[in-house]
């Protein structure tokens, strides 16, 4: 069995950092809505990862980082609104089947962001990980430590709630 790369080696540590820092930070951000707080939490966990490098194997590092960040977040109960932006390359009113659906694109987008923020934290994090970060349910289950079934339920509930809030703004 080939030996695992050591987390204590800077090269490997940097690799883990580049691989996971951004996604973990976003995950924590979607939970707490405070980017500064999210970055602090994740950075402190990476400091810990370095200190514990001898005891954490390279393959277990990802789950350690997520779990530790999540625990750290639970200790700092501070939920805020997530600030979401539209990608700049998106041109309004592109190829919708029927542009008439939209009362007004920008207004709708603002309402969508508000509606996402109105979701419970559990649903919000699943919805954003899926739709914005394009993670599969299996990945989300791994990150959150829940079952795929639970993720599917949360996702379905999130969609239902968004439709309830936004449906009246989408004229068919």
């Amino acid at each position: 069995m080939p030996q695992e790369p050591s987390v204590c080696e800077e090269k490997n540590y940097n690799e883990l950092f580049h691989k996971y820092y951004e996604q973990v930070t976003k995950y924590i951000y979607y939970k707490c809505g405070d980017l500064q707080q999210a970055e602090d939490i994740v950075q402190n966990i990476f400091v810990k990862l370095w200190q514990l490098c001898a005891t954490i194997s390279f393959s277990k590092a990802k789950s350690y980082i997520y779990r530790a960040c999540n625990n750290s977040f639970l200790n700092e109960i501070k939920h805020q609104k997530v600030v979401l932006r539209h990608q700049q390359d998106v041109i309004a009113n592109t190829d919708y089947e029927s542009p008439d659906f939209l009362i007004e694109v920008n207004e709708f987008r603002t309402k969508l962001k508000d509606a996402i923020n109105e979701l419970s934290v559990k649903e919000r994090e699943v919805f954003l990980l899926s739709r914005v970060e394009q993670k599969t349910y299996r990945e989300i289950a791994e990150i959150t430590g829940l079952t795929v079934k639970a993720i599917e339920r949360r996702m379905s509930k999130a969609l239902k709630e968004l439709r309830e809030v936004l449906g009246k703004d989408i004229k068919i």
Binding site: K26, L84, V90, Y96, F101, L102, L112, I116, R131
Partner: peptide
Amino acid sequence: IINRESQLLKGPDI
């Protein structure tokens, strides 16, 4: 439409 618009959203720059 909700799904489509949601996928156009972007998280924070990190």
